[in-house]
């Protein structure tokens, strides 16, 4: 795992929120995530990474924040995680992945289209083997969310 692979995702996340919701989420102290750990998130967008590094980048939101974001963006009041909420989070993660792609141009890295995982305390399918995983919490006026990265270097830099 190389920090230079992760920074584009952090910046893309912050910019996307700033543009769409008007405030820049603040990053908090990162921590280690164990692969079997179940985090208290309700909806996640998973972006696959391949190339000189292999793994996934995951954006996880609690239910409340996901609904709040959807309310702001669609103008409809959301009180449950319905298809609109899932679509909105999917679109948001899509935008973030698209922006991050630009920041990753200098590397031999490819990123997949995001897929959405939803459900109480869902688990993320991290790459097999002992892959280092780091979580970066973000805080917004609407609540916390989390960016987790599990990457394995293939070409050692």
């Amino acid at each position: 795992m190389n920090i230079r692979y992760i920074t584009p995702f952090i910046e893309a996340t912050q910019n996307a929120f700033l543009e769409l919701l008007g405030s820049k989420p603040e990053a908090l102290t990162p921590f280690l995530v164990r692969r079997e750990e179940v985090l208290d998130w309700d909806i996640s967008g998973v972006i696959g990474i391949a190339g000189e590094a292999r793994g996934v980048v995951v954006l996880s939101f609690p239910r409340g924040l996901a609904q709040e974001i959807t309310t702001i963006l669609t103008g409809q009041m959301k009180t449950s995680v319905d298809d609109d909420v899932i679509d909105t989070v999917g679109e948001l993660v899509n935008i973030i992945a698209g922006n991050a792609k630009r920041g990753l141009e200098e590397f031999k890295l490819m990123i997949s289209l995001p897929s959405i995982v939803q459900g109480d305390s869902h688990q993320i399918g991290w790459p097999s083997g002992s892959v280092p995983i780091v979580g970066i919490p973000f805080t917004t006026p609407q609540g916390h969310f989390n960016l987790s990265v599990g990457l394995e270097n293939i070409i050692t830099v």
Partner: peptide
């Protein structure tokens, strides 16, 4: 700040 800690955390995760 979190950026520096991220570097350390990544190393720790490895």
């Amino acid at each position: 700040d979190w950026r520096e800690i991220l570097t350390l955390t990544i190393e720790l995760s490895k």
